[in-house]
Computed example of a mutant assay.
Amino acid sequence: MTRKTYTLLGADRVPYDSPTSGTLGGHRKGRIYGRLDCPTALRAIAKGGYVTQRVFFADEATAIAAGFRPCAVCLPQEYAAWRRAGERCVS
C-alpha cells in the first residue's frame, strides 16, 4: 500500500513532502496565501492560469514566515490586519 504525499512549502520557501495535505494555498510569484476555496484563485485556475505558481502551506504561520501575505478576497480580516501592520512599519 502506497501512502500519498503532498508537497508543501516550508517557512524557508523550500518544498517538502508531507503525509498530510496543506490547509492553505498560495501564489508563489505574488506571494499571496489564502483558503483552498478562494473564489479568485479558483477563477484563475479555471482560466488556465495560476497552476504553475501554486504552492501549499501546512498553516498560516508557515505562510507568513515564508513571506506571503493574506488574500484580500478570502481572508479579509487577516488582510486588513496585515495592511495595518505594514502602515505602522512605514511611519
Rank of each mutant, 00 (worst) to 15 (best):
T2S: 08
R3Q: 15
K4S: 15
T5E: 09
Y6W: 09
Y6G: 01
G10C: 03
A11F: 07
D12H: 14
D12M: 09
R13S: 08
R13H: 08
R13G: 03
P19F: 10
P19N: 04
T20L: 11
S21K: 15
G22V: 03
T23A: 12
L24H: 04
L24N: 02
G25Y: 13
R28M: 05
K29R: 13
G30D: 13
Y33M: 03
L36S: 05
L36A: 00
D37G: 04
D37R: 01
C38P: 06
C38A: 02
C38R: 00
A41F: 13
A41D: 04
A41M: 13
A41Q: 11
K47C: 12
G48K: 02
Y50A: 15
V51N: 00
V51I: 04
Q53K: 01
R54H: 12
F57H: 12
T62K: 03
A66V: 02
G67D: 10
F68K: 07
P70I: 11
P70N: 09
A72W: 10
V73S: 11
C74R: 02
L75W: 03
L75T: 07
Q77P: 08
E78L: 06
E78H: 11
Y79D: 15
A81D: 09
G86N: 04
C89R: 09
V90Q: 15
S91E: 00
S91I: 08
S91K: 05
